[in-house]
Design a protein around this nucleic acid. Structure first.
Lengths: 302, 302
DNA sequence: CGGAGTGATATCTCTAAGCGTATGGAGCGT
DNA sequence: ACGCTCCATACGCTTAGAGATATCACTCCG
């Protein structure tokens, strides 16, 4: 990439003159007087090294060299103009791309309303949404694979990432419909002490896992996890087969499955925190945009 | 076409910095100190209205707006550079296109050697050659349909066109091989007085036609033209069938046809002038080039 | 022959680009 | 804590660019 030799204003004048083939009119179109235009063209011809126009009285024409340069000049000017407006669109946040990672359990609650209000405000923005559990989201944010994360139980502080709480969800008990406890309106956690548990593997979201087991421990027992599954959908299905019970954020009530019952638990003080995450140094104007959309949009009730 | 907002030097700096992602190295590549580079980028960002780079200590990166502008900037710069060198190639005459019209009778004499020497000197120039008779050539030159004409009997002076004599050709008699006069080494023009003539239509080249009939009139008779044909090739063929005789420039001896004989004529003082023609105001550097090639190349002997 | 139209030249002004040197200040590693 | 790297800022200088006005030169035309 060598340093540019031809100033753009001169090329602009060149293109306009090539279209008008008349110094007076071209100068008018450029909004300048005629002599400066003559100068511009002369200067440009000086830098190119050859005449670009043949000047015969009453008849201005492009020389072969001018004909050769014209399309390049036109392309450069239009490309730049387009690129500039595109960059401004993106810079202002009117256009662009935002990659969002979200926890599967939010697919039926926060996510839909968030996407709706965001799309209303930024119709030209492409949204790439991708289901990911908490830990991979944090990694993806750092690696710049996603720009926004919707996750559970964020770390309290992070040098690189910012968090904002979206929702505080209580837990519910997930029971087979045939289970004894399913007859109650609410279930005390200690009543689950002897039941086998179906849970997420701890690795996909250690804080949430610890919160659930912490609930049990607070109730005086250590849950016996007999089965793991990576998706809440699967956990509910397994519970439905009678394999065990589970404790889950209230959101998953939206998953309707035959033979599965959800019940409030007591104590109901412990809640799981749902948060947005973003890179603090992300220069994109869409990040503030989506935070605003989250706060403004209808609160995602489970 | 609006007036350009972004100066090219700044875009150049932008592209280089986007490649290096390091102010120091980019400045070195640009051959300037680091602070001016910072200024350039700042100015550019000011004009765009948004940051193009995210500056975190130890890590420079493109913002989305910068990513959007980068390809446009690169395209503009490379297109301009290519267009500029192309224009210079054409301007210097090293490349380009030259449209040549030529009289058919020259296809076997002046034209081949001219093309050969011209191609040696200007290998990158495209030559469009096109067979045309004299009158259309003059029109095509004026209409800028061709750039160079190779024609017979040019007008003595022309305001717009320039001419240079390439060759002065004597005439020969074209006879059926069986003709009585074919037995002689040379034919006196008046011996053709009673023969029917095959000639070009006057319209395709009035001066040449008048010259031929003038030859006859000088010899004391008016030729009886019984047949016209637009190509010398055809004329010779018709002569070969015994339809008549003709008078033609010596060049057409190169046309070898059975049953056709060519003989010197007497008096042999009258000659037909073969000339190059060009637009006097043609800005192309190839015009002087081809004139030089004509003078330098081997003289086109018929 | 004179005037209209068109482009080139001459001269002047002003602005902003472009560069350099010197300096400040934040992170990071030793 | 110190120094190193790296980028930003401040200041001053020079020059090229871009504009205007006034004037000249040429051609064409009535």
């Amino acid at each position: 990439m060598e340093r540019p030799e031809l100033p753009l204003p001169q090329l602009h004048a060149f293109v306009v003159l090539a279209e008008e083939l008349h110094f007076g009119r071209a100068a008018t179109r450029l909004g300048i007087a005629q002599p400066p235009l003559s100068q511009q063209i002369r200067r440009l011809e000086g830098k190119v090294g050859y005449d670009l126009f043949s000047r015969e009285p009453g008849r201005i024409g492009l020389t072969p060299a001018g004909r050769e340069l014209l399309p390049a000049a036109r392309h450069a000017l239009t490309h730049l103009a387009l690129g500039l407006t595109a960059a401004r669109e993106v810079g202002s946040g009117r256009a662009g791309r935002l990659r969002i990672g979200f926890a599967a359990s939010l697919a039926l609650t926060v996510l839909p309303s968030l996407l709706r209000t965001f799309r209303e405000r930024f119709p030209a923005v492409d949204l790439d949404i991708q289901e990911m559990t908490t830990t991979p989201q944090l990694a993806a944010l750092r690696e710049r694979t996603i720009d926004i994360g919707l996750l559970r139980e964020p770390p309290a502080h992070d040098a690189e990432l910012g968090f904002e709480t979206v929702l505080m969800e209580p837990f519910v008990a997930v029971l087979p419909a045939s289970h004894l406890l399913a007859g109650q309106r609410a279930v005390r956690v200690e009543q689950l002490a002897d039941c086998p548990f179906v849970l997420l593997p701890r690795a996909v979201g250690p804080p949430l896992y610890d919160q659930i087991t912490g609930l049990c421990i607070a109730a005086g027992f250590t849950p016996q996890v007999t089965q793991h599954a990576v998706e809440w959908q699967t956990i509910c299905a397994l519970v439905g087969t009678g394999l065990g019970v589970s404790l889950a954020p209230e959101s998953i009530r939206r998953i309707r499955l035959k033979g599965v019952a959800f019940r409030r638990i007591e104590p109901s003080t412990v809640r799981t925190r749902v948060a947005v995450a973003w890179r603090k140094n992300d220069p994109s104007p869409l990040v503030p945009g989506i935070l605003a959309a989250l706060n403004q949009g209808p609160p995602g009730r489970p």
